[in-house]
Amino acid sequence: MSALILPDGDRLRGITVRQPWATCILAGKGPENRPKSWSWRGRVLLHAGKSKPETAMLREPLVARTIRHQELTTGAVIGVARLVDCHHDPAGSPPCTP
């Protein structure tokens, strides 16, 4: 994650997320599993990574319903999200569930 210092001293940060998850987050997707937690909370620019999504992933029912009729932009900022909380899963456990 990187930070941009704005004129009033506020910070705007950005995060890169692969498609189709970036679009799903903007549509209200529940928990986003990440490899590490951040102490920072607030708005983040949501950047869609450049890699193309796997076809099998696009067929998952929840993903397919969310992205239907939407263009999956890659390599660009596609919106703003709010990071509200993070938690650590115990070592060796699977990621949290919705």
Results as ranks from 00 to 15, higher is better:
P31H: 06
R13V: 05
G30Q: 13
M57L: 15
W38V: 01
V84N: 00
W40P: 01
L45H: 05
S93P: 01
S37Q: 00
R59Y: 12
Q70K: 15
N33M: 07
W40A: 08
R68K: 15
T16M: 05
N33G: 08
V63F: 12
P7V: 12
L45P: 06
T66Q: 08
E71I: 12
I67T: 07
H69R: 12
I5W: 03
V44M: 14
C24G: 10
P98R: 11
Q19I: 09
R11F: 03
H88G: 00
N33K: 00
G14I: 06
P20T: 12
G30M: 13
R65F: 11
A81R: 00
L4S: 10
S39Q: 07
C86A: 09
C24T: 09
Q70L: 15
E60R: 10
A81K: 00
G92W: 01
R18Q: 14
R59F: 14
R59K: 15
E32M: 04
L4W: 03
A76I: 07
V84I: 08
C24M: 15
P61Y: 12
C24V: 11
D89R: 04
P35Q: 05
R18D: 14
A56V: 09
G9R: 06
D89Q: 08
T66I: 14
S2E: 07
R13E: 12
I25T: 03
I15G: 07
L45T: 06
H69S: 12
T74C: 07
A76V: 05
H47K: 03
T74G: 04
C96G: 15
A48R: 01
E32Y: 02
T23W: 04
C86G: 00
D8S: 10
G14L: 07
K52H: 07
V84C: 05
N33C: 11
D10R: 11
K29R: 13
I25M: 15
T55C: 02
A81M: 09
A91S: 11
P90L: 13
S39V: 02
M57T: 13
G28A: 13
L58M: 15
V80S: 02
T97N: 10
E60K: 10
G42K: 03
R18W: 02
P90V: 11
D8L: 10
R43G: 04
R59S: 15
